[in-house]
Design a protein around this nucleic acid. Structure first.
Lengths: 337, 337
DNA sequence: TTCTCAATTCGTAACGTTACGATTTTCAGA
DNA sequence: TCTGAAAATCGTAACGTTACGAATTGAGAA
């Protein structure tokens, strides 16, 4: 920015020292006389000196910024309410570690790898957090090949090696389906994302595992894949409800999905949560204030964001250390509120 | 990031040209032979060249990043749900204009001016968006003195000159109070932020204007200043409701405030929206799903975010042009949903 | 006084880019 | 073939910082 800010040269000139000595003094270099260190630090503080990140970045290659590639336009990814604590968690954790968080929202029509390549080549950050992982994510391979520090939200297939934070989607869906089966439900519907997200695959697996354990058949017609707008969700559930053997329980995948399900039920004169059991994706505040008997797991998205940044910071600062891999356990399945 | 990315020198060497010529060719400099321009562009595309922002920033002073100073930890500022569309609007608009949005969440204990000074002196962005404006905001004076491009969310006292986007809080509170007065309410409570935010001052003024027009006295005991957690809001409203002459209508300031009010009412066996009228701050999705007779203005926070970035981009790119000043009009007071 | 060695301090180069002035090449006209 | 101007290209410096090796200073010993 155009603000004329003090730089090393000005401080050096004002003290009759060289730029080199001032630079070293400010980072307590052992070669600088203690008295000089004190003088320099005093002058720097008086002048309000802050090291210029642009020069620093060019010289050292470190920008002290991290970039999160997080779709914000697409309503399909993460519920509205789950997104904010994730961003908050990342921002706060980044700041606490001396980083700035930059958010890049990829355009839906862009090739994810190409978009990522551009972001990395800009060289404006020390590492990236990527989201919306697919099974064989080409981005992971590319990042690894190019030695770019990264952490992913959600595992990818080759997840044995890289830093990631994941929600235990398998367990969440499994517990949800198991609970419903134990309550006597035989026709349990599951809502998934429309893409090839790993999270959806995990949820589907967990759901099937629970059904198998309960001795129930898995009916593909009961697995909805819509893109999680309220309307799409409503349509999707409505179709299931209008079939010959409709579901008596729904496992939703976002609060928009939940609201869509409620709309579809009300449209048919059914009482949500009573006539048809409902399990929400996250136990968000919204669920609690629906005044409906809805169950949900509480998932700490802020913690997920913080852990993501911690994992990325680890890759940046100690590349030799093993990557941090975390699966966030959900809280117990409980009455939403 | 450590990725070895192509730079101008490599492209120049591979073509037997100088760095200067390649640099000029890539931006269609008129001094370069058209055939050379074509050759250079082809080679650059083949190599996947992306200009390095670090070098560019150092040379040109432009970082193509903007920083939004937005408190994310403090629950007191902006409702949870209103924050996300604001961030989304800013991110998307920034990206559309070739900027990256960085979010800096100031720590509550930090001096706002000092924190801003550090952010600016880092030189990591071309301009800043600041929020939580106070009447005589020292940050505005400092930014102006130092020639830093900026836009504010909310006006400050000397707002005649700088770029800002504001919500018409005066009108929102005025219409809310007027509507309640017209419905026969005589004791109308208003909830405000606890700080010295301009938005709260505007709301208070609008509220008082409506009461005066309706010939009602303004009772200071009916103006709550809490910090907008659900609990604080509940306590604050509870105190009012337990007084000798309790309010029969509440104008809330966030959805958390609304939920706190509902909790306080239910605690006393009162039916929210029926026994005591409620007007919410924003017509968020949550309000609609409360299944209560709640009124609210719809405020387009995503538009506010987009407009903020547009205003800031204007300051950065055409400093001579008059600053963009926008007041976002709310939608009509309507049944929430 | 002079020498030696350690303690300080300094100057230069480099990161990748663009601006500016200098230099080379090209080609029409004599 | 030569001249000269226009066209095209090149080299150098600079943005602010740090790393490296060189240069200077000072104190104690001979």
């Amino acid at each position: 920015m155009p603000a004329t800010r003090p730089n090393l040269r000005q401080i050096a000139d004002s003290l009759g020292l060289s730029v080199t000595t001032v630079s070293r003094a400010l980072k307590d270099g052992p070669e600088v006389h203690p008295k000089t260190v004190a003088r320099v630090k005093e002058a720097a503080a008086a002048a309000g000196y802050v090291p210029n990140l642009r020069g620093l970045a060019l010289r050292t290659g470190r920008t002290h910024a991290i970039t999160a590639v997080l779709p914000l336009e697409a309503r399909a990814y993460l519920s509205d309410i789950a997104r904010l604590p994730l961003i908050e968690g990342m921002t706060v954790a980044a700041r606490a570690r001396g980083y700035t968080l930059a958010i890049q929202s990829p355009l839906p029509e862009e090739d994810p790898l190409e978009a990522l390549r551009k972001i990395v080549h800009l060289g404006a950050s020390d590492g990236v957090v990527i989201t919306r992982m697919t099974e064989e994510d080409r981005r992971v391979a590319w990042l690894e090949q190019n030695g770019v520090p990264f952490a992913t939200f959600g595992r990818s297939a080759g997840a044995s090696l890289h830093a990631y934070v994941d929600i235990d989607n398998h367990r969440i869906a499994r517990e949800a389906a198991a609970h419903l089966a134990a309550a006597g439900h035989r026709r349990i519907a599951l809502q998934l994302l429309s893409g090839t997200d790993v999270s959806s695959a995990d949820r589907l697996e967990g759901y099937r595992a629970a059904l198998a354990t309960a001795g129930l058949a898995a009916d593909p017609a009961l697995v909805g894949r819509d893109d999680f707008s309220l309307e799409a969700s409503q349509t999707s559930f409505a179709r299931m409800l209008d079939e010959a053997d409709p579901p008596t329980a729904l496992i939703c995948a976002s609060e928009l999905g939940l609201l869509g399900a409620i709309a579809a039920l009300r449209q048919r004169g059914l009482v949500p949560g009573t006539d048809v059991a409902l399990i929400a994706r996250d136990n968000t505040r919204l669920c609690g204030y629906l005044s409906l008997p809805v169950l949900a797991h509480r998932v700490d998205m802020a913690l997920a964001g913080e852990t993501l940044v911690a994992a990325l910071a680890g890759r940046i600062e100690t590349p030799a250390a093993p990557p941090l891999r975390t699966v966030i356990a959900p809280g117990p399945l409980e009455a939403a509120g």
